[in-house]
Each structure stands twice: as C-alpha cells, then as structure tokens.
Design a protein around this nucleic acid. Structure first.
Lengths: 228, 228
DNA sequence: CCCTCGTGTCACGGCACTGTAATAATCGTT
DNA sequence: AACGATTATTACAGTGCCGTGACACGAGGG
C-alpha cells in the first residue's frame, strides 16, 4: 500500500469521508474541489491514483479524465470514477474515457478500499504491499525484507525499489528512462547511466545467493528480470 | 479488551440488553438515549467505540455520526451502526457516513460481541488488553507492565504506547508519519524526528535486557520490530 | 516554591547511500 | 580482426539520514 491518491470531489462531506478512509487504509490523500485545482496539483506531483467525481462544477470529470489521458506525463495514471446511481447509464462513457474502474454512490468504505486496491494491483503492483516472489527471490514490502533462496538479502532504498519494480513487472524489458520514471520518480533529473550503477549494486547484493542471474541485460534496450 | 463503549439507543429494553452483554464481555458501557445526551458524554470522555442506533429521536444516528466525523477530536472513534431490517437499504448510506460496521436488529449477543471485537481489533489492536509477546518481550496492557526476559522494564507513557503499537504490529515497517498517527494521534502536530528520539529512549530502556535489538531501523523508510 | 519527570526540538557528527565520471570490458558489425 | 557503440565496474565526493546528547518547557507533586 502507501500510495498517493488524489481525490477530486466537490462535495466536502464525501471528500472528507473518502480521504479519511484512504488514510485509514494507509494511503496519502490529496484533495481537490474541482478540475482546475486538481490540474495544478498534478503539475507539481503525480499521484499514483486518481478518484474522480463524474459531476464537477466547471470542467467535468469526463473532460478532466480526457485531458489526463492526452498528456504523456499523466496518461498512465489509474483513474477511478465516482458516479451517482442515476447516472448509471453513463458508466460505459466513463470507462470509454479511460477510467480503470468506477464506483456508484453511495458506496461503502469497504468497496472503496477493495476497488482502490484492485486497481493498484493491476496498474501499479509495486505500490501494494503484497509479497512478490520470482525464482528463488521473495520480497515482502510490509516488512521491507528480501530473501534469496531463504537467505536474507539487504539492499539500500533505491535498490529495494528497483528490485520491487522489476519483480512486479517480470519478463519484460524496461528502458533506463522507464526505470527512472518508475523507480526514481518523474520529476527527478538523473543521468541514465546511473541506472547501470544501481543494477550493478543490485546484482552484487544478489551474488551470494547466485540470484544475480535473474537480472538480464538487453543490449540497446534496457534490463529485464526473468527466472530463466 | 476492556474498552469503554458508548451505546446510543432510544429503546430502553434494547439499550439494557446491549449494555448487559458488553459488560459480560468485560467492557464498560456508557448509555445515552439520544444524540444530544451522547454528545455531552463524548465531551467529557472519549469512548473507545460507539454503538449507534440508526433511528433516533431528534438528531438522527446518521447526523450524529457525521458530527463525530467532522470533529477532529472524535473523528477516529470507531462506530458500529444498529439498524432494523426494514432499513436495510440504507446500509450503504450508513457506511458512507463513515461507520466501521453494521448490525441489523434483531441480533444475537454473539454477533454483537464478535463485531465489537473485530472493530476494536481492526481499528486499534493496541487498544485491547490482550497480553502481547514478541521475542523475549512481554507487555501486559492491563497491569501496564513490561518484562524483558523476565526482568521488569519501565517506560514512560509515550514509550509504552510506542512499544505496544510496535508489538501488536510486528514484522512490519512503520514510517515516522504512521507512528505519529498511531501512537501520538492524528490530531497532534509534532516533528517527525521526535519519533527518533522516542525510539532511542525505548532502545535505551531495553538495553539492560539486550532486547533493544528487536527494534530495527530501516533506512529511508522507518522502524520495525522483529524477533530476528 | 522548587524539584522531578516526561516530552519535544535542536544541533552535531558519523556513516550509508547516491550520482557521476573515468576506465575497463563486452558486444555487434563490417 | 578491428572498430564503434554499449555496458560493466570501480572510485570518489557530496548529500542526506539517523543516532545521540543536551536543553527548554510545562505539568504535577512534594
């Protein structure tokens, strides 16, 4: 868990309710009353997920979602739409604009949490605290522990996040740029070559368990984690 | 267990039944016939949990819940709603106001106790009076006593709560923010680094028993309690 | 009134971590 | 085999995080 979630909702009571529940679930909640305010927030820091009311004063939720989807920087952010029951027929339209899921009001905190978790699991598995296991490697985000073939492995913060991301997206080549975006964050200015160094450090830390072979170099493209 | 529970219910028979059962289960029961009376009680002493009838004369249960949620001092108190079967369709609305759980009348004492226990455990496991034991450490909330490998350990109030929380959530990294929310309360404004100092004091107090090793630092993330 | 205890904040210092550059090694291509 | 391009590896200096001791403040109690 522990994702940053932006709540865009004009009704204060519901907004408060939602952020309260998110906080209880261990997330950090950003709040916005309307689309303009939300856009500003998104400028400065990208949230991991956006809860978006369908009906908003000024720019509507749909329109806001469309804009997010058209901007390269924000197009991959998962969106959950909030809609009133009476607008149920608009569900399809909502999903068409690229929402990942929708919730109809009134909803229970349990449902909210379940859907948030589900979407995060699908779109940003490295944000959840599910235990990940690949090959002989096991990583537990909650306890922040890693074992390779049963032996404990210890990593610095960056290597930890890097490995976590790779393990949640295995069998897939990631360019250095992608890794920088996903592991370092999108507002960071860092040389691409730096990724090499951290890959190196990660491999070195895994050497004692012979699991460094999981991290493969794809020349001209990037890196991949694979049990083969 | 041994929580202080406020029962807000206008029907005397049901109120009596509930408080009797709560007392049987070892809790202390406060009684209120209506929301106004309940608000007064809450002013003087915060209960650990509130059982709230949906239908109340005067201020309704929903409205009362909303007020509790809007006040900083009371927003974290768990609420269980009581509703008649016929009001079942309002469940969602009930949960929307931030209730933690829901019981439909008529209910069995067993169900009541189970839900109360579940909510208390979910919301604040460190609120219960169960003796906690991790590694060679034993903490007894009821007698407010701690022993490390048999030897008594004494702590200040804050260190006690901190240790209690850590022991009830072991094998898990907690950020300074999470610890502040959980141990200090989310209405307090305190520097994050203050957590370090209390961790230090806690470690120092545990040193004589060599159990200070249980409290581990996870650089860049927070602290963890673990028997390893 | 003073003393003690508990608490929160600060400042200093050490050290782990990070990013970069320089150099060595490797790969693919001709 | 040789060359350019790409990646591996190492070293190093700067940075930021954390541990630690000191201190001020306030609440209670003697």
């Amino acid at each position: 868990m522990a994702a940053t979630i932006l709540v865009v909702e004009d009704e204060p009571a519901i907004q408060e309710l939602i952020s309260y529940n998110l906080k209880q679930a261990g997330h950090q909640a950003l709040k916005a009353d309307n689309a303009e305010q939300a856009l500003n927030l998104v400028q400065s820091a990208l949230p991991d997920l956006i809860l978006l009311d369908w009906m908003l004063p000024g720019i509507s939720g749909v329109e806001f979602a469309r804009r997010l989807r058209s901007d390269k920087r924000t197009k991959t952010i998962p969106i959950i739409m909030l809609t009133a029951r009476s607008e149920e027929q608009d569900k399809l339209t909502g999903l068409e604009t690229g929402a990942d899921d929708y919730i109809t009001k009134p909803f229970s905190p349990r449902e909210l949490n379940a859907r948030v978790k589900a979407v995060l699991r699908r779109r940003a598995p490295q944000m959840t605290d599910d235990v990940v296991q690949v090959g002989g490697l096991k990583l537990d985000p909650a306890s922040h522990r890693i074992t390779g073939n049963g032996q404990p492995v210890d990593l610095g913060p960056t290597e930890f996040r890097l490995l976590h991301f790779l393990m949640t997206h295995p069998e897939r080549v990631h360019s250095r740029t992608q890794l920088l975006d996903q592991v370092w964050g999108d507002h960071v200015f860092v040389e691409e070559r730096t990724v090499d160094v951290h890959i190196r450090r990660l491999r070195k830390a895994l050497e004692p368990t012979a699991l460094d072979a999981l991290i493969q170099t794809v020349r001209g493209t990037g890196y991949r984690l694979s049990p083969n």
